[in-house]
């Protein structure tokens, strides 16, 4: 995921990319100034017009692909919380917990709207709402999470996993949005909201006595959820960043746990797809 590769990809999708780079840079600069002046609610449209200005047409399909990939994950999260909220106090026991789940669910629905609008106004086609199997049973309705809407502990376990995985998924796509200015910033602004969600869900689990999650991810631990979501956390145990070992760095008392907690790790699109495939009914 380096600059050369991305430029190669862009050039493949858009042969005149290199010739247009200067124009595009100017458009990026113009957009930066423009974005500061428009109301925040208008941003998806602004991104669309930015794309048209930069590319004199739709943006490279690779950028639209990234946005549609993000949209897919947001649909999943939004539908998951919608289904949970619909169960009311039968599933979510306290007013504070319900308020938090509603806050998170609202954000996921807003991300869906935002991404759909951004894709459409950029000349792309947003994917439709997929048919999900929230039990994680690939359409059988009988997957490992089939009790998530009657069992609060399982509900929060799935919520934590979706949020932590969402954070990893956005992180893995950042490089594909290098040089896209406001599009990258919007993706980063969604990414950190997912991390705030993850932190809160983890606190909800800790307070309820479900597992032993801290607000951050320690090595590749699931926070007491177990092997069913282990694959979502594999790789988080990394303690080497850009070739620099963080454990005990410069003589500091930084343990393996702390070194891994201090940096969240990305997942590739392929890894994420493999993890969420059971949630699609096909």
């Amino acid at each position: 995921m380096n600059l050369e590769n991305i430029q190669a990809n862009l050039q493949q999708a858009d042969p005149e990319f290199a010739e247009r780079t200067d124009t595009r840079r100017k458009a990026l600069k113009d957009f930066a100034g423009f974005a500061g002046k428009v109301a925040i609610t208008a941003l998806p449209f602004a991104i669309g017009s930015f794309f048209k200005k930069a590319y004199a047409g739709p943006p490279p399909s690779s950028v639209i692909d990234v946005l549609n990939f993000a949209l897919t994950l947001e649909y999943l999260e939004a539908e998951f919380y919608k289904a949970g909220i619909a169960k009311g106090s039968a599933l979510i026991p306290s007013a504070a917990a319900m308020q938090a789940i509603k806050t998170i669910g609202t954000h996921e629905a807003q991300h869906v709207t935002f991404l759909r609008t951004a894709i459409t106004s950029s000349g792309g086609t947003p994917i439709d709402l997929p048919k999900f199997d929230l039990s994680g049973g690939s359409g059988s309705g009988n997957g490992p999470f089939k009790d998530a809407f009657t069992n609060y502990q399982l509900f929060l376990a799935v919520a934590q996993t979706l949020e932590d995985t969402g954070v990893r998924a956005y992180k893995g796509q950042a490089g594909n949005l290098l040089g896209t200015g406001a599009v990258l910033t919007a993706a980063l602004n969604i990414h950190s909201v997912e991390a705030r969600h993850a932190s809160h869900i983890r606190q909800m689990r800790q307070k309820a006595g479900f597992g032993d999650a801290k607000p951050w991810i320690t090595t590749r631990q699931t926070g007491g959820i177990g092997s069913i979501v282990q694959a979502n956390y594999n790789g988080e145990e990394n303690t080497v960043q850009a070739g620099i070992e963080i454990k005990g760095i410069n003589g500091q008392d930084i343990t393996v746990s702390e070194a891994s907690e201090g940096f969240d790790e990305p997942l590739t699109k392929e890894q994420v797809v493999a993890l969420v495939t059971p949630f699609f009914a096909k």
């Binding site: 995921m1 490089g175 980063l188």
Partner: peptide, 23 residues
Amino acid sequence: IASGDYLLLAGKIVSVEARHAAY
């Protein structure tokens, strides 16, 4: 940021800061 490697590093750190912020 011009480098994809540094952008990823910033991404690895910012989500931890967001976890702190939420806590």
